[in-house]
Design a binder for these strands. Structure first.
Lengths: 230, 230
DNA sequence: ACCGCTCTTTGTCGCACTGCAAACAGATTC
DNA sequence: GAATCTGTTTGCAGTGCGACAAAGAGCGGT
């Protein structure tokens, strides 16, 4: 394992409030791990031994129900802190995190948290912000699922993905990792079939452009209108 | 305003890790406010000037959608920390909190947070735990709404209410505050009508006992079976 | 360049649930 | 105790979406 440099984390929102010396302290406890596409960073209901910051790639966080159904909780983008179950008072991870493309993360042992906090007290606040915005997202989703019909939920999900991981391409904005209709279905609480139908209809209207595990939004504004119109 | 004593907070999970001296410091910044039934503790989208701990009563946290629909996010029980929007990095409250019975809360100005943290660093961790368990709840709800049909969602909602605010009565366990079918509908993402039908059916089977703004669960175990059976 | 796998598309059918409507009942007010 | 208000029950008709089925298409492996 090569020694890590603080430049890796200096620009991340979570660590930028820290002084260079503090950043050195923090990075010193970490190691960098590569996860090939498809690999699990951690798995649901296993002991939460580590917490992480994603450096490169994208992760899908999925929750499996007792009856075997799967729900996509969210996608993790580079720079995000994740896997902080222990810090929230849990012994095990509440979901699994899978690499949807080759990815790299910084890994700290959960036991390092108190030490880090002592050295950099601002971290607690940063973690609280992180969890707070996830809570807001989760509530938004609850509200959407309670009040909106499927088509609008899919529109919102797509817009969120574009915002979080959109990459400009010739014909519009593409979601920057492989994502299947099944995945979108599991994000919006519907079926693969319904998602496929909706995307096909949108494609006919020139709103989006589909492909195998690929979605390009050609007209984000019109999609937004569709998502919000009452 | 009468001076507050640390005995008010000594037994609350959030403050119990603090030393008596720290508890004195914390309580010193607070004031106690009474909210009559129906009053708002704070309102959605207003500036988050305060945070709170509930001492007595029950609050309903509701979110209003742009199209005017309402969703019940959760109920707050005595001892809980709430209204910590600022600490999560928000300027305004993301929802409204209404007293469903006469209630009393401790109120701190948001600006007191840094001072409190300096005096009692354990508070940050406590807040993180609080938000963490809310996040877990929200995710549970997302999963339920994605994968379960209405009847099962209502069963789960009732079980959660009973667990959080159940009071033993002669014929079973009663939810300890007035709650209408409409409220249950807004918790489970369905309509008042469907909830009424479901509860009526359950009443015929001797599972629950209804009444105006009143629900008594007569047989929690059978309700649990109904909620979990695949 | 072929084969086989996974992902996607499209059609048909049925039903759980919603939306509308109207009557009913327990609480509250004067 | 009558009047009124708010919350609850119940019936019925309509439908959005899920369940099932089967064919088509892009991609990776040998």
């Amino acid at each position: 394992m090569s020694p890590l440099d603080r430049s890796l984390i200096a620009n991340l929102a979570i660590f930028s409030p820290l002084s260079p010396a503090e950043q050195d302290e923090v990075i010193h406890e970490a190691r960098s791990v590569r996860y090939p596409k498809g690999a699990a960073v951690f798995e649901q209901d296993t002991e939460a031994t580590s917490f992480f910051v994603l450096l490169h790639g994208s992760l899908q966080v999925v929750k499996l129900t007792p009856s075997g159904q799967q729900v996509v909780v969210r996608y993790v983008s580079p720079g995000e802190l994740f896997g902080i179950a222990v810090q929230m008072g849990r012994a095990s991870y509440p979901a699994s995190a899978l690499a949807v493309v080759d990815s790299v993360a910084l890994v700290w042992p959960s036991s390092a948290w108190p030490t880090l906090l002592a050295r950099a007290p601002g971290l607690a606040g940063a973690a609280l912000h992180t969890v707070g915005s996830r809570l807001a997202d989760a509530h938004t989703r609850v509200v959407e699922m309670s009040t909106e019909e499927v088509e609008r939920r899919v529109a919102h999900a797509l817009l969120r993905l574009v915002k979080q991981s959109g990459r400009k391409v010739e014909t519009g904005i593409q979601i920057d990792f492989p994502i299947s209709r099944q995945d979108v279905a599991e994000m919006t609480g519907t079926t693969l079939h319904t998602v496929s139908r909706i995307l096909s209809a949108w494609e006919d209207q020139g709103l989006v452009e589909g492909g195998r595990q690929r979605i390009v939004v050609r007209d984000p504004h019109r999609l937004f209108m569709l998502a919000e119109r009452k």
